[in-house]
């Protein structure tokens, strides 16, 4: 279903080359390479301990790799090695061109300040200083993620889990990022709330032409949102390809096990 919004640009946005991470003798992630193109949604699936979250942290520059490189094509068109960026440049990237949606919204939001401030804060960080415009943009984004604007002055700790997650998404998207990392974004939610969030994400991703790296253990999420999937096990990518191909015609024993473990809808 996620077949819309791909584009023809033939230059990758994010490139991982032989990424590895070890903790002493334990290899959490081994030799992962791929390219992500603008507008492309890549799902990383696997069970806990497969290395998918470690990989996400390395890709998003939050964890130093033991080996390999991540490079990113900046807004000026120049592709840079993340390790070569200074701290200030990295922070700017995180505030503008990248988003990160955590499984637990409390990690991505400031729970005690208003929803409007949560969204507006990202704009102020990139130099917006007109209160009226910031508030206008914040209310616009609350509407887009289906939060009643009447709740703009309430703090997210008064919000339900689904609303918090939608607010976290608004906060991430307000600066118009080109790449968003997502770590089990539907993980802690009720099934009905999940469906709504997935539908919202799916539309926003297509409309805004976002590139997304999404970590999930839920194959239904991967099917609904992603174009491509990487299956990880024991720190390695064991199978990769078009999402519907990998899920409908899995080749590796572990992928077959994963797919056969889904309850029929």
């Amino acid at each position: 279903m996620a077949d819309q919004g791909l584009l023809e640009t033939d230059e990758p946005l994010l490139i991982a080359r032989s990424l590895s991470k070890s903790y002493g003798r334990i290899a959490a992630c081994r030799d992962v390479s791929f390219s992500l193109y603008p507008g492309e949604v890549l799902a990383i699936v696997g069970e806990s301990g497969s290395g998918k979250s470690t990989l996400l942290q390395m890709l998003s520059g939050q964890l130093a790799a033991s080996g390999g490189h991540v490079s990113y094509r900046m807004r000026d068109g120049v592709t840079r090695d993340l390790a070569s960026l200074g701290e200030a440049e990295r922070r700017l990237l995180f505030r503008t061109d990248w988003g990160f949606v955590h499984q637990d919204p409390a990690q991505g939001l400031r729970m005690a300040v208003s929803a409007g401030a949560n969204v507006g804060e990202r704009l102020m960080a990139v130099g917006w200083n007109h209160y009226g415009r910031i508030r206008e943009s914040a209310s616009d984004w609350l509407t887009r993620v289906e939060i009643d604007v009447a709740r703009i002055d309430d703090a997210p700790r008064t919000y339900s889990g689904g609303m918090r997650q939608r607010l976290q998404i608004a906060r991430n998207l307000v600066t118009g990022p080109r790449l968003v990392f997502m770590d089990e974004p539907t993980g802690g939610l009720d099934v009905s709330v999940q469906a709504r969030l997935l539908d919202l994400l799916r539309n926003l991703v297509a409309e805004l032409h976002l590139a997304v790296v999404i970590v999930t253990h839920d194959l239904a999420v991967a099917r609904l949102l992603s174009h491509r999937v990487m299956v990880m096990k024991g720190g390695r990518v064991i199978e990769t390809g078009l999402t519907d191909q990998v899920l409908d015609d899995p080749r590796e024993p572990y992928t077959q096990l994963l797919v056969s473990s889904i309850l029929p809808p």
Binding site: M1, D3, L6, E8, E40, L224, R228, L242, Q245
Partner: peptide
């Protein structure tokens, strides 16, 4: 995979037996 997606977008349509409803 990218080429396959482009082919599906511009060239091949597929009517399956069942609707996979969103």
């Amino acid at each position: 995979p990218r080429q396959v997606l482009n082919v599906r977008r511009a060239t091949i349509g597929y009517v399956s037996q069942f609707l996979r409803a969103v």
